[in-house]
Design a protein around this nucleic acid. Structure first.
Length: 121
DNA sequence: GTTCTGACA
DNA sequence: TGTCAGAA
């Protein structure tokens, strides 16, 4: 994971800040959490701590709601998105394996030049 | 002063 | 979804 991604996933924002950044009420934010649309961390004192990713997530929820989707719909959207992410991951893994196979077989050198189109991952 | 949970005139 | 109570 890159540093950038790590920072985006750092949960450090209290709900008050999130309210200002998203224009959502604490009531709404807590409601979305109860419905498993967002998963903020908790501090020792049981206070919610949000990350920048959580902010984006809440902003998306806001847009989807404005488009007429209900909680169940939004849940599916996020669910399918993660499913796709999983597929893409296994896809790059598979390509890596295939590339390594070809390297060991000697069909591919470190600098093969223009042989045939194999997209390197 | 801020946030949490539960409840509802 | 707003808002109030009682606690942390």
């Amino acid at each position: 994971m890159s540093e950038k991604e790590l920072r985006r996933s750092m949960a450090v924002l209290p709900i008050g800040t999130v309210m200002k950044l998203t224009s959502l009420t604490a009531r709404q934010i807590r409601y979305y959490e109860k419905n498993e649309l967002v998963f903020p961390n908790r501090s020792e004192g049981n206070r919610r701590l949000f990350s920048l990713n959580d902010i984006d997530r809440l902003l998306e929820i806001k847009d989807f709601l404005a488009d007429g989707l209900n909680i169940a719909d939004i849940k599916r959207v996020f669910k399918e998105r993660e499913q796709k992410l999983q597929n893409d991951l296994s896809d790059t893994q598979m390509r890596r394996l295939l590339r390594d196979e070809l390297l060991q077989t000697g069909r591919l050198s470190d600098d093969p030049g223009p042989v045939f189109p194999i997209k390197r991952v």
